[in-house]
Amino acid sequence: MSILTEHLADRLPVPIPLPTLEDWPNAEFLVDPARGITVKALGLNLASVFQPIFNAAGQVVAQEALLRATARGRPLPPMQAFASAASQQLVAFDRLCRTLHLLNYATFQHGDTRLFLNVHPQLLVQVESRHGEAFGRILDSLAWSPERVVLEITEDAIPDSRVGQVRAAIESYRARGYGIAIDDFGSRHANLDRLWTFEPTIVKVDRELIARAEHSAPLRRALPKLVELLHELEAEVIVEGIETSTQHQLALDAGADAVQGFHLGEPRYFGSSTQLGAR
Rank of each mutant, 00 (worst) to 15 (best):
R98A: 04
L195S: 06
S48E: 09
A190F: 05
T244A: 09
G179L: 09
F116R: 03
D193F: 01
E152D: 11
E133H: 14
R11P: 00
D94I: 02
T38H: 00
A9V: 13
H215P: 01
E236F: 11
L142Q: 05
T99G: 12
Q88T: 12
L209Y: 06
A175V: 01
Q88G: 03
G277I: 07
I210A: 01
S172R: 08
T246N: 08
G177L: 06
E171G: 05
E228N: 07
L226C: 04
L276Y: 04
R207A: 11
T201M: 13
S48A: 12
D112C: 03
R98L: 08
R72K: 09
L117V: 11
C97P: 09
T70N: 00
F82R: 00
G179C: 13
H120K: 08
F29E: 00
V239A: 04
P15D: 14
Y105C: 10
W144Q: 15
S87D: 15
A56F: 12
I158P: 01
N45M: 04
I158K: 02
V91Q: 02
I202D: 09
I16M: 05
P78F: 09
A86L: 07
A9W: 08
E152Y: 03
I170Q: 08
S2K: 13
R74D: 11
L219D: 14
E64P: 09
S216L: 06
L219K: 05
V239T: 11
T197P: 01
L12P: 00
E199P: 02
D193Q: 06
A86S: 13
Q63K: 10
I138A: 09
L4N: 12
H7D: 15
E171S: 12
R98C: 07
L223D: 01
